[in-house]
Design a protein around this nucleic acid. Sequence first.
DNA 1: CGGAAATACTCAGTGCCCTGACTAAACGGG
DNA 2: CCCGTTTAGTCAGGGCACTGAGTATTTCCG
Lengths: 154, 154
Amino acid sequence: MAAADLTTHPGHLARRLQQAHYLLWNTMVSEETTSPQFAVLNALVAEPGLDQRTVGERVGLDRSTIAEVISRLSRRGLLDKVRDPEDGRRFLLRLTEEGARTHRRLTVRTARMNQVFLAPLTAEERTVFFDLIRRVADAAEGLRDPGDPLPAPR
Amino acid sequence: MAAADLTTHPGHLARRLQQAHYLLWNTMVSEETTSPQFAVLNALVAEPGLDQRTVGERVGLDRSTIAEVISRLSRRGLLDKVRDPEDGRRFLLRLTEEGARTHRRLTVRTARMNQVFLAPLTAEERTVFFDLIRRVADAAEGLRDPGDPLPAPR
DNA sequence: CGGAAATACTCAGTGCCCTGACTAAACGGG
DNA sequence: CCCGTTTAGTCAGGGCACTGAGTATTTCCG
């Protein structure tokens, strides 16, 4: 007995929120380029020539996932991937003209989508919304490496 | 030029929030049973004998995804799946003793994890947090079928 | 200088998540 | 009663996300 009320479970809400966003992105922004892919393009507009790992860090993706995303973008010719001559382990990433064009196009569509997505909230509520989510996510992320603050000593 | 600030993009925040939760779940709740799997167990505790589609509806998963999740739970012997004698299309789902036990065990761990996850927020902030996310997610979900409120006529 | 440790990336494996196309069962009106 | 429509579930295919193991390169230290 005693089933839990999932509407008070942040994990469940986070999943539902992301699904809702995924859906809206698909219909209002792009069917080819996903939201994580856009985040990568965006990071490279801000800082061209980043290596794979750092891009992953910027957008919040682990080494495996970022490798897949980049391989797809590269396959579609949206970015170039070249060995760093100074450090043979790294790949340096840079948008192609086509990649930059895609980023520009999606930027305006994304802004439109965000308006629709956030329509149920007032301006003040949006600020609070961002702040609360950011605080929870940041805190949980900080709970990672540093000496394993949780019971299990690994 | 003009890279966007992703910290004001709800989709990006939602993804980061979910990742943070995934991580915490893994370390504090279970490595075998995932959060969506727990949601399914929970739905069946509340309403035993539901069919697959309805469970999916309750926890917010489409028919394909719910089929995979259920197949995994069934493989591990946490639930039984039998043809509805009254309607040969449906499968009726019911937790096994082991499934019910798993649900009980995870329920207490989940509560502990939620405390940690929400620790950065005060009690009032948590209420707001739930409310805002729910409103955004519900609104976006409502934006689905009904006559396609968006440009594209399908 | 040479070997151990750290670092960037790859690869295999698992699970979630969606769409679109398909099969089988049930339903409903002529 | 039969045929068309709806409905439950399956299957193939693409993408995101993580872990753990493995490779190559660089770095650091004795």
